[in-house]
Design a protein around this nucleic acid. Sequence first.
RNA 1: GGCGCGGUAGCCAAGUGGUAAGGCCGAGCUCUGCAAAAGCUCUAUACGUCGGUUCGAUUCCGACCCGCGCCUCCA
Length: 482
Amino acid sequence: MASELILYDTMTRSVQPLWAEDGENFRFYCCGPTAYAPAHIGNFRAFLVQDVLRRTLEIVGLNPIHVRNLTDVDDKTIRGAQSEGKNLRAFTRHWIEHFQRDAKALNMLVPHREPRATDHMEQQIELASRLIEKGLAYVAGDGSVYFNVSAYPEYGKLSRLREREIATQKTTSAGRRNDADEYDRESVADFALWKSRKPEDGDNFWDSPWGPGRPGWHLECSAMSRHYLGDGFDLHAGGIDLCFPHHENEIAQCEGATGKPFVRHWFHNAHLMVEGRKMSKSLGNLYTLADLTGKGYSPMEVRYALISGHYRQPLNFTLASLQSSRSALKKLEKATETHLDAGGMSKEDFKALAAPPFPTEWGPFEEAWRGLANDLNVSRAIGGIFTGLAQLDEGNKGTGTLENALKALAGILYALGIELYRKGEETPVTVPEELQSLARERWQAKQEKDWAKADLLRKRLQANGWQVRDRKDGYDLISIST
RNA sequence: GGCGCGGUAGCCAAGUGGUAAGGCCGAGCUCUGCAAAAGCUCUAUACGUCGGUUCGAUUCCGACCCGCGCCUCCA
């Protein structure tokens, strides 16, 4: 092992070293997207943080096996499919493909497995059956199956809600009465393992020992993580909002069914704020990747902005932060290029360095590595990159060669998933014809040294949102975003 | 009410019991018809308030103020 990687664990509320229980692979599961709409940047913050973890695990030699599910059946997917007149499979396939394109653009590594809920009905039904057998779940009058929280004393240990509080959780944050007991479950705290078929589900139901229906949300993660990673595995990840009830319920389902510890390490990331406010549809600040690339930002700039804060702190995402990321990335590329030139290396050479075997000595980038290895402190790691580059500027390569140092830099950037000199990032933007002709007119005036006219036209173009950027032999029109 | 998080320079954001990384912005210069881009250089006595512990606190403890998250299907 290259060096120790430590990470905060929600269950113990402390920083713990990561290690593979089976000594071979570090097995971890991430709660993935629901396939009903384009993922927004808040979703991506979680997946990117997990991606950085995956990459860092690789570097440290823990041989990760990364499983991330795709939720392709729930209220939203069913509703969405119906309103578009599509069958559920076709509807979710579209959004899954959309998600995978975004993920690739953001330079996320593909998980080793991406199981879908609807492909694992058997495993889910089996799990629910076991819970019924063990007396931890019951079948309600309508054919739904509920987990009996009161039969499971350990319930609440992850979020540290005491049972009494859960049972009396009758009001919501808004002070409204929580009358979620519309089904005939025995207690409001009980949650659905299986939901019996309702008329509005249409064709979307599966057969089960309890009649037609569909699985509850929590069941899929329990069943699939168990199927691919075993009864107990190393780490489970998700946004902090999933801590309760989703992960709490997963624990109850798995440990209830198997009697074995479910997960050794819980990894939760804080939420994303947008322009200082909670991201929400009603505030209209729910960005998707396409929204941002449409404003002229590259996916790599988005990635940089989304990972730049510590994962346990709420991150305030703003358009200004994207601009800041752009400048920082440019600076990074430039500084790296200088040292590549000095070492007689090409950009392609540099890309080739970002691959195993990864360094164990980090030279000028020691601090950057320490940041990563110490609870995935990306802010510290990025700071360390810049100070490392500054040290190289001063000719301080540490004990190794320049090539060693560049290999270390490539390794750190690999961990962060920052790919420099990415090609084809710029999305071509079309300039309206009338503005193009204005620009041509201005160029003509400039050739004739009619400065007054040229400047006037420049201003008009600017007023229309386009900046003229002259070159020696022509000009470019740059969209002035935001 | 329960559980939890945060308040560091104009903005973002690390971190430490002995006076604080980094990025952005900004400024100057070079270049340039102008502008931009690009390059070079530079910059800041910033740690919410009030107490306590300590030789010494931004860092530990307490109180308070302010902001934020979760509390049944939202990463």
